[in-house]
Design a protein around this nucleic acid. Sequence first.
DNA 1: GATCGCATGTAAGTGGTTACATGATTTA
DNA 2: TAAATCATGTAACCACTTACATGCGATC
Lengths: 203, 203
Amino acid sequence: MPRVIKSKYAVLGILSLGPMSGYEIKKTIEGSLGNFWSESYGQIYPILRSLVAEGLATSRTEEQTGRPNRHVYTLTDTGRGTLVQWLAEPVEYDVGRVEILLKLFFGWQLPVEDSLTKLREFRTVYEGLGSKYEGIEQWLKSTQAGHPGLPYWLATVSYGQHLSRALLAWCDETASILGAIEGDQGHPAEVATPGRKNNGRDD
Amino acid sequence: MPRVIKSKYAVLGILSLGPMSGYEIKKTIEGSLGNFWSESYGQIYPILRSLVAEGLATSRTEEQTGRPNRHVYTLTDTGRGTLVQWLAEPVEYDVGRVEILLKLFFGWQLPVEDSLTKLREFRTVYEGLGSKYEGIEQWLKSTQAGHPGLPYWLATVSYGQHLSRALLAWCDETASILGAIEGDQGHPAEVATPGRKNNGRDD
DNA sequence: GATCGCATGTAAGTGGTTACATGATTTA
DNA sequence: TAAATCATGTAACCACTTACATGCGATC
């Protein structure tokens, strides 16, 4: 079963916006997908080569003096077809790994203040993200007005906004619940583990 | 010899709940952290060995007939100290990779129906997760009443609930915005790429 | 009689980052 | 003069997953 190489489609997608060099692809990803995606040169350059080998892109070399020649890649029709096909495929759910939840889960074994600090740190990050998204939204609306992609790009920003608002609310709610715990935490004890012997409910 | 970072602390954390075998650790992770964390045997067994080598855990062998001997691992004081130290360290923000946003970002290049379908599929997943979390919440409250870990475990469930509620709202909002786009989408065009020449705002 | 649960583990592969090498040009 | 920007690329490493090997006993 060939697993899906997502980086390949990210590059294909960026190339669908116009011919570009590897360097430009990286910059474009950072500037447009940067809030929910990233790619390193270590991925981009080998992928670019494989795209040409598979006939999904062509490359032409722009001679330059004083710096390496620019290799500009252009999507072929097959390349665009491959992208469109992938875009239509359903997104599979991935559990992922949420580090703050891992830390919080074991947090009852140490002073409640430690968990509250963690929540505050977390809150600060998402507060910052929230205002960042607001700025991006304004900037998109003013610079991309009329572009058919605008509603789609705004949707990706809106995702971030909904997410950070929700996590901020969760932080506050959780902090107030944990804050109500009396101060004598931190001593390990013999306990039953949670989540085991769960009669077919979870997972 | 794999040198592991976060997985190591996940195992250490599970071991802080009581002595366990590798097999039990996997089951316990699935049953308690399963909604936001996962580990494979390919990680767990080598980690267990390295924990013993580093003095963070001890192992004793329970002889068994008809099946492999059970290796039961117990946290040492140093092991518990290492865990507590890690728990207190701040969580660094990670951009991550959100596949649905990658697909949506390029969605304007194909019929709007394709993106709406994607949103519906996504919605179904988070609807299901929402009710799953509700069940877990009830189950935790009824089976773990009085346990000092309960508020912390409920907090991890609450995270999932806030998240799925937010994403559901985002889906509906986005679907209604995209739904308002007229039907003649899908033809590629020469366009400026968004997000470039952003004067120090993004990233 | 098939498959699930128990129980161990490893080898190979995947998808990814980081650090490095090179070096001219522009900007602070 | 230090740094960032432009521009290419690779080798080494890292964390992690998947598939496999083994095999008994209980359940469907």
